[in-house]
Design a protein around this nucleic acid. Structure first.
Lengths: 353, 353
DNA sequence: TTGTATGCGTTATCAT
DNA sequence: ATGATAACGCATACAA
């Protein structure tokens, strides 16, 4: 005869100790145990102690899935970023996580690889996972994304941008205006011949906006960016080097005296390549970037760049989302300060027109 | 007779369309609908189509919490890293996420800030969140952590290490041995007077191991690291500069001819500071680092360093955990190749003893 | 304040 | 291959 009783279900006793066990040990109902653990102020002093010690004694760990199902709250928020491989994004996510952690939320991350279709897929996955809020980057999303957010009623926040897109909450700065300011600085220095090593605009509205800003600033002074002086490269140091060679091609007299880079990584590459080409920075050529990474102030001769407070944006995004979720007041939009940091990589042109 | 049942719940109709709705529209039972969506091969051709179109028509999105509760599977794994702010970690997490995504898992991240007590707290939170696997960094964990993992039966993997700790699965490399190799390279070059700008050993076994390795290699040649020539600094460029000034203090004749840095960020700082002090690298001083970041090959004169395949470790960690979770064979330990990359920052000492 | 009884949406067991 | 139905572990409306 079989020593095993015929079992009704075949579930593993994965988590032996459940709330009911705690309640039993404490001699109270599951409801009271639940309240004691979650809303201590709604329960008597004595009960509270009994439940707590019982829970501790059993090493009780609540089951998040069951809790989420019953309460319809996951206490989880999601973030879809292009990649964590860009340090400036990583910093933002780091601070996002820190703040969420402080406020009792967990963070699930996914990357879009700068592709809006993948961003949509990832966001969908996170939504299925039950995130209660979503941090996105930029404002160029798949048309279906907002609809998805809408139907699920999940708050979201666009970061790194603060553009005309008044429909949607965002935390960041105006990339166009920022590029204008940076370009104006160079113009005021006396530069007239420009080149730009931009990021890949496709799928990256921030990169595109920076090009627009540069063009706009130049146009106001009656200047323009020659086609041969604008090149798009993925963000990277090696790409910055390639970019510099490309935009410096041609007759020396027609070469740009200032190169604007889409981010600091590209700018580092440009500076290194200029050195390799024997072109003095800033004597022969001024170079500027965007972001202001840890290295920007240290790399000789120091990189003039726009300081972007990526960590602050992460913190603000966390607060915005949690406030929305918890029904607290939350500013629909908030702007962070991006400031020009002048360092050694810029100077007046050696031979102004 | 009451038109409505007397008890009515006040739940928000948060997710109007559920599996039952799909089943109803398709004219099948919920069970069949579930099977059609999850295990298509266990269902008839015709049913499958009906269910799928019904689901699409209603825009059905499964509820992860309910699914997790019923199946006892969250399809989520967790990672606790010191910080995302170190680009080398960010890369590892990026690749971890990529691979998990490919295999149908989501990633929830938390940071420990190099503190084992916080690591324990974060791991606990992730476990409560129902992660089915956990990626950790290093091997120096809180005593309770393994017990926690054990009771919950959650697979884990220690990354960035491959030490004697044979109890636990890990993916990485031997930090001591790696430091030995790096030091031997300098010794073979002829260096005899060394300094080290290490990371903070407290809470960071990798940083500590690298110091051990350097000492070990020196000891084998009858040399040692003077107390005044070893300094611990948080990983950072500015800290590297401070560190260099500190270890170069004293009479020039007694100065080290080689400085070993705990990671590339510190090495960058050391190189910059050496330049600022008018000390030629590698003519007067050789500098080496660990990690091999994107900038290491570009920064003049090129940084000699140990290349650490952080992305690969992320991928391997993902595969290991998913394989374990899904009952597939998984190597208990796997080692990645760390190789010495010689660049311009090292040369024989100008005046060997 | 505490207990009782559902219900959350899905998967899985069993019978058909 | 498909349907009926009992868990899954917890929170909460309601009664006491």
């Amino acid at each position: 005869m079989q020593p095993r009783p015929k079992r009704k279900r075949f579930h593993l006793p994965s988590q032996p100790v459940k709330l009911a066990d705690v309640a039993a040990l404490a001699g109270v109902s599951p409801a009271t145990a639940s309240r004691a653990l979650n809303t201590p102020d709604k329960v008597g002093e004595a009960m509270l102690e009994r439940v707590r010690t019982a829970a501790a004694a059993l090493g009780y760990v609540p089951d998040a899935a069951a809790r989420a199902l019953a309460s319809r709250r996951s206490r989880t928020i999601g973030a879809v970023v292009p990649t964590l491989d860009n340090p400036i994004f990583a910093t933002g996510v780091q601070r996002l996580e820190s703040r969420l952690n402080e406020r009792g939320y967990a963070l699930v991350v996914a990357s879009s690889d700068y592709r809006i279709d993948k961003e949509l897929r990832q966001a969908t996955i996170l939504l299925e996972r039950g995130v209660e809020g979503l941090m996105l980057m930029g404002t160029a999303h798949h048309p279906s994304l907002y609809a998805l957010l809408e139907t699920r009623g999940v708050p979201h926040i666009n970061t790194w941008v603060d553009e005309g897109d008044k429909e949607h909450p965002c935390i960041g700065f105006d990339n166009v205006e920022t590029a204008v300011r940076l370009t104006n600085y160079l113009l005021d220095l006396g530069h007239r011949r420009f080149a730009m090593i931009a990021g890949i605009a496709e799928g990256n509205d921030r990169a595109a906006a920076r090009v627009v800003g540069v063009r706009e600033a130049l146009a106001r002074r009656g200047l323009r960016l020659e086609d041969s002086r604008l090149i798009e490269e993925p963000y990277g140091v090696a790409e910055g080097r390639d970019g510099l060679r490309a935009v410096m091609a041609g007759h020396p007299d027609e070469r740009p005296t200032a190169v604007i880079c889409g981010n600091d990584l590209l700018a580092f590459g440009a500076i290194f390549e200029a050195a390799a080409m024997g072109l003095d920075v800033p004597g022969y050529l001024s170079v500027v970037g965007f972001d202001d990474t840890e290295l920007s102030s240290h790399i000789p001769p120091g990189l003039t760049t726009m300081h972007v407070p990526s960590g602050e944006m992460g913190t603000l995004a966390a607060d915005y989302l949690v406030n929305r979720i918890e029904g607290k007041p939350a500013r629909h939009r908030s702007r962070v300060e991006v400031r020009l940091v002048v360092r050694g990589s810029t100077a007046p042109p050696c031979k102004p027109d």
